[in-house]
Design a protein around this nucleic acid. Structure first.
Lengths: 135, 135
DNA sequence: GTAAAGGCTAGAGTTCACTCTAGGTCAAGC
DNA sequence: GCTTGACCTAGAGTGAACTCTAGCCTTTAC
């Protein structure tokens, strides 16, 4: 079975080796095995697990909560419900983030139009009457 | 003209007064005027500006870059192009974030289905054959 | 056999964005 | 006139997530 060194693993998931060692220190990688002399070897399934970790991180989940999830994974079927609930909750937060981001995008796009007009006119005065305003 | 105290302004944009003072310290609020004894009074246009600042923050923009934008706003028409470019760039990053979030959502939804099946079966074994795997 | 490349740990340092504390001013209500 | 509450500043402290350093150990290539 093919395995990867820490730097190969880091490259694959696009983080630094420092980050991987930090994750391990924080208990996120209990499944990564070591050679006789202590070197980490990442299996294909470890890479997949890291992708899940990165996915959870992308939802804004703090490392301590990700560790909780990893711990649950080690418990087996006992924690199935907790893990399901966790993903349901993540789904809801990601949905909320998407909606927030859409609102943000609307504002940004308005600003783009504002500045297009201002640039065409050569001045912001096409938009406002007086004073120093943030636009 | 109606104005707001720092605590009223904080409530309106849903941050703490500490945060507003911190923003001011960092140069994000040069437009906020003070009473004779030094108390900040937020105008309606200041609240709008704060909303733009919060919008930029929501795109992941660091405070130092937001300050750059605020500085440009003070320069007037000279900086129109820079400010336009900034919003174009923000638009691109938000678009990228939306795509990333969509991918994240797809993974999360897969996990939800995985756990629904596992819960129905009462065990994760419906999914995998051997070993400790993160799921 | 020795030097370079890569791995290891413990622990210190960094950055960011707040968050809070201490000590002080000021206006309003009793 | 004095207490209460809201405001102020400077600066210290916090927590998260890295990021790096120092010192040490293997393996590989000349």
């Amino acid at each position: 079975m093919e395995t990867y060194s820490i730097s190969e693993a880091a490259k694959q998931i696009n983080v630094t080796v420092y980050t991987l060692r930090y994750y391990d220190k924080e208990g996120l990688l209990p499944f990564v095995e070591r050679t006789a002399n202590g070197t980490r070897r990442f299996k294909e399934s470890d890479i997949q697990a890291l992708k899940i970790i990165e996915c959870l991180k992308a939802t804004g989940m703090p490392i301590k909560e990700i560790k909780q999830f990893i711990d649950w994974c080690g418990e087996g079927d006992e924690s199935l419900q907790q893990r399901y609930d966790l993903f349901l909750e993540r789904k809801a937060t990601v949905k909320a983030q998407m909606e927030e981001l859409k609102k943000t995008m609307d504002v940004i796009e308005h600003k783009c139009l504002y500045y297009e007009k201002a640039l065409k006119a050569g001045t912001e005065k096409v938009h406002q009457a007086a004073a120093i305003v943030i636009n």
